[in-house]
Structure formats: C-alpha cells, structure tokens
Design a protein around this nucleic acid. Structure first.
Lengths: 342, 342
DNA sequence: GATAATTATGTAATCGATTACACGAAAGTA
DNA sequence: TACTTTCGTGTAATCGATTACATAATTATC
C-alpha cells in the first residue's frame, strides 16, 4: 500500500516547512517563484494528493451536497439528480444521495445525517407535508446550510424552491382535451396535500370554467400514482350515469392504467375517449398508443436547483435570499388524445 | 446561526477535559458511571452533534462510498444505486454518485476525485474497456480502497465483481424463441468489447447449436442500445434472401425499435415474428404488446455489491480477497414472443 | 555603508475528535 | 500504617492542511 504523502513529507524532503509547501501549492503570492516551482515539481514526483478531509475540517466546507428524494429509481428523480450532478461537478461538488421511501421519519433522519456530515447544502423533494420534521428543517436553517426544494415544496421562510408551473400544466392539458372536442373531462388527482397535485387540479378546473364547461366534483377521482389505481378509477367512472369521454390524469402511471382498462372494454382511443397524463415518463412515448403528457423538464429542474444552491452557498453572511423559480411546463401531444394530428 | 457545539464546550461547562467527554460519549469503560451520565445529559441539552469531518480525519474513514455509473437516469443504474443505498444506509455509509457519460476521461477523473475525497470504497460499472485508466485503477488499489465492479466488469487482480450470468440469459432467451417454433433467429449484439454483450452473444450461439440449428454470422447485427438502431437493424434483416423470423436483442430499446419497425410493415407479432430483449426495462411490461425480456435483478445486484464492499472494508490488512458473484438471470416471457401463453 | 522597505520563510495556533501515557485518588492487602 | 492495585481523569500528541504573526533574508534608498 502506498504511503500517504502529506505536505510535511514534501517539506522534510526539501528542508523547508509545511507552511511554505502549503503556500506554494495554493498560489499564495508571498513566495519565491523558484521555491514554488520546486515544491510543485517535488509534489508531483512524490505523487502528492491533498487530503480533502483535512481541508474540509479546517475550512468547514465538505464540498459535498446532499440530495434527498423519495426514491431514486424513478425516471423523474433520477433525471433531476442527473441535472444536479452535471451542474455541480464542474464546481468540485460531490452529490450524496438519500432516499426516504415517502417516510417522514427517514426524511428527518436523512436531514440530520447530512448536516452532521457537514454537507454544504441540501436539495430535496419533500416527502410529506406533515409538520413532523419542522425541527429538522429548523436545524438545517440554523446551521446556515442552503436548503432548496424542488418539485414537491413546503412553505418555509428562507428556503428556496424550483418547481414547474403545475397549474399551467393542468390547464394546458385540459384545454387541449377540450380543443379535441371532449365534452366531459374527468380528473385523476393525486394527494391534494401536495401543492403540485393541488395546482394541477386547479389548472384543470380553471380550464373547464374558462371554456364555459361545468365543473363537477364527482368527475374528480383521488388516485395513487399507479397503473392499478388508474384501472380502478376508470371502472368507477364508467359506472356513472353520464360517464366522461376524457381524463386528465395527474400521473402518467394512472393514465396508463386508464388506457389499459379502456382498451379492455373495447373503447376506442382517441376516437371515443381521450387521455392525457403528467410527467412525460419515457414509456409514454414508447407505447404503440403513445400517451399525451405534460413534461416537467426534470433535467432542467435539477440544473436550476443546483444553480440556486451555487448562488446561495457563498453568501451565508448576507441576508438570506429566498428564491422561487418556476419553470414552464410543456405539453407533449400524442396519440392518446389527438384526433387530428395522427 | 447556532454556535457549533464541540466536546470542548461540554468540557468547559462541566469543568472537565475534552478527553473525558470523548470517553463518556464513546462508551469507553474507564469512566465513572456518574460522569458518563452527566456528560451524556449535558451533551444532549447543549444539542451537541459529533463533527464527522474531524472524526473522518482522525480515523481516516469518511463513511462515504463512491458509485460511478455511465449515467444515473437509466432504470438499470438507478435501481442498482437504490440497492446500494438501501444496503449501506443502515451501516452509516453515505453514497456519492458520479457519472461518466461513457467517457474514459471522466471515469478516470471520477476515480481520482473519489479517492482524494477519501471514500471508503468504490462500486462501479466500467465505461470503457480501454486500458487508458489503468493508472487510476492502480491508484485505487494502492490506497487499499475496496473496488467492486458490477454489470460491466474488467479483469483486474484484487477487484471483486457482481454480475449476472449473461451467457445464461442469452441462452434462455434464445432457447425460448426456439421452443416457440422460430426457425431463424437473429441477434442484435451490443459492443462486443464488453463481456456482458459478448456473453449474451455466446449464450445465443450455444442455444442454437444445442438445438441443432445452424449459426450464421450474417444474422448477428451490431446495434447500439437505441430504438433507432433497432429499426435500422430490422430494415437490414428484412432485405436478406432468407429473413429471420425472430430476434434476440441484447437491448430492450433495440428490441422496441425492432417491434415498431415490424408493425410498420404489418408483420404480425408474435404470430409471424418473435422478439425478445434484455434488461427488463419497465416499459417492456407496460406496452400493449409487452416485450419478453431477461431480467438483470438490478436491485439485488446493487445490494450484493454493497455486501461485498462491507465484507472487504474491514479487512484491509489481510490478504485481499477477490470475490466474483454471479447472479442468475430470469427470463420474463411476454406477448412479443409467446405464441401459446397469451 | 547604514537604514528602511520589501519579500520570503518559519513558528505555532487552529479546525474537532481520539487515545497512549502519566498521574493522583481511592480501595484493597498485609 | 505502609504498600500495592485499581480506577478515573488529565496532558499532550495526532490526523493534514491553512494562516496570522513573527522573524530572517534580501533589496531599495539616501
């Protein structure tokens, strides 16, 4: 095993002190050019590598940033993380991943662990809207560690966020269905305690009203984000006296379930029934019957979150700036809802 | 901003030394029970948190592990990372993510960065089989940092690996196509310089030979792992004098492209033509025409890699044990190839 | 050539925790 | 009572790098 070379080893070899070596390697101006060159050359020949842990302890900055997500094996979260990593890598930051599996307890635990590991910032998508973790969030803010929410956000003073305009996304999708001539549009809403789902719902509602259509509560079905939930919801809808002829689902997975169930019942899509989803999951465009969906620009969301972090990380002493970035959603129209284009 | 509480602060408050505080908090036996309790109580009341960086510097262990993958926004890699995180989290390790985007240069850079950040181990899927990075790999091994390859592996002494039996996967898929009555089976092979793709090909070949079928080079098409590549490959195959009536693709994406192109040409699947892929990407089972695919047990691969790391991390002084774990692949038979089951 | 100004280097503290060694106090033994 | 154990705590070095301050070496100025 190779010995660990420190600046002391270099100093000893050159009969100078570690301070001089440190200065030479850090481009400190108060150093003779010849010594600088000698030190740098010697350091290279001895295969010296700076110990980042020592530096981190001294400076109080670990050059690590923590990212907390419900789970990593979802295309959306993975893309966001990709964006974060790509934006932060050139700045010398490493990305530490934590998963919560939608458990407030684990979220809490992860927050404490990351702070204790001295991360320089935390970017996260919250798991639950309960206030259970307020202590942990306060702990983060007390330590003056930049905290940025993406997608699923909470209203906390001093916390920045990067989200998309979910209202507009819901509005666009619904308006599109109306334009395709759909008469009665149902909505699969997610957990309304999350802003993102609430806003998608509000956008849906507004689009109906703006087009002079009537909004009826019974066409709004609470579903989980799963294929199974989508199937069950369709089953429920089709039992109504006046079933709808379109669905705007706040989840692509539920939209897929809906489509599968509709096909099962030999209802022709998009002729008799139109479906639009949300998230633009990769599979939506792979399907033979590709699915219309609202894109969340996940990669960009990650990059933007990283940029907000970079803006804040060096200004810990100034007044904390709370930045709210809202990205524009983009509707991808595909076969599941387009009666004209395909 | 809350002051950072150190063991010195606790010591001062109690009129004892930091050494005693440290001993009390670490369950050192040489300490009076009453002082221990007092220290622990005081530490809690002052909201003391151990500085992990100081600990890391002292102990030489960062409790971080590095994971290097080509990209994170692919279901396979994300699942593996999920497995690694879940297995290592209970042991107090944090997972640092690095991406290479298939660039040997970035892989090299990531290896050095991780070692310089003093990670306790590295789990990775190699990007390229060139020897360009041998220096970096040697550097890792010299530092006695456990290195574990998963999926895409390289033959390096002292490096453990966790892979699936790609040969068997290729064999199973091909054998299945034969059992379905296919007469001429083509193969989409990936980059043959990777063992995983070579072995899938060899499994395919062996299955043909074992069934008394003739292997012909011209039915093997080199494709990238993309939908487009699959389409082009089908185009090529259908121009042959005797086109095949089945494809075993080493990539699910290429398999999807093949299916799209076949449908375009009104060739009925699976009646006239069967297709099987590899990886069991989520979309393969979502399709209306679901795709037969070989599952790579990605979650388990991640967990197993983490376990191998744990086995090795504490035995740096003993002889380095090189462990090679090979997981069993599992064929998921679906509509794209099953003439009987559906 | 003597003094002031500049430049390069050394000394030592610091970041926060752990731990070998030393030492005083209490308890045990004769 | 005198001497040996045992126990609990303090002292100080250590992990590796940075940096304010002090000092030595060099150059500039008259």
């Amino acid at each position: 095993m190779s010995e660990k070379i420190t600046i002391y080893d270099i100093a000893k070899k050159l009969n100078i002190t570690a301070a001089t070596v440190s200065r030479a390697l850090n481009n400190n101006p108060k150093i003779k050019e010849s010594t600088r060159e000698l030190v740098i050359k010697t350091a290279a020949s001895m295969n010296y590598k700076q110990n980042k842990l020592a530096l981190a302890l001294k400076s109080g900055r670990s050059n690590n940033i923590g990212v907390i997500v419900p789970r990593i094996d979802s295309n959306f979260f993975a893309s966001v993380i990709r964006g974060i990593e790509e934006e932060l890598h050139p700045h010398g930051y490493q990305v530490i991943i934590c998963q919560t599996h939608e458990s407030a307890k684990r979220e809490n635990e992860n927050l404490y662990t990351l702070i204790d590991a001295q991360v320089d910032g935390i970017i996260m998508s919250v798991t639950d809207v309960t206030d259970e973790n307020d202590g942990a969030f306060r702990y983060v803010l007390e330590k003056n560690v930049p905290l940025i929410f993406f997608d699923r956000s909470k209203h906390i003073d001093g916390v920045s966020s990067v989200t998309i305009n979910d209202f507009k996304g819901g509005y666009l999708a619904t308006k599109h269905l109306i334009n395709e001539g759909c008469q009665t549009i149902a909505h699969f809403s997610g957990d309304q305690s999350f802003d993102i789902f609430k806003n998608r719902f509000l956008g849906y509602k507004q689009a109906l009203l703006d087009s002079g259509m009537t909004f009826k509560e019974e066409y709004v079905i609470h579903t989980k984000s799963s294929v199974e939930a989508g199937k069950e919801a369709v089953d429920k809808l089709l039992q109504m006296k006046t079933p709808p002829d379109a669905i705007f689902s706040s989840s692509d997975f539920a939209a897929l379930g809906a489509i599968q169930e509709l096909k099962e019942r030999n209802i022709s899509i998009p002729k008799e029934f139109c479906v639009a989803g949300f998230s633009n999951e990769p599979f939506t465009k792979f399907m033979e019957l590709s699915i219309t969906s609202v894109d969340q620009s996940s990669l960009e969301m990650g990059k933007m979150s990283a940029r907000v972090f970079l803006e804040q990380v060096d200004k810990t002493d100034t007044i904390k700036i709370e930045k709210k970035v809202v990205l524009a959603p983009e509707l991808h129209i595909r076969k599941s809802s387009s009666r004209t284009n395909f």
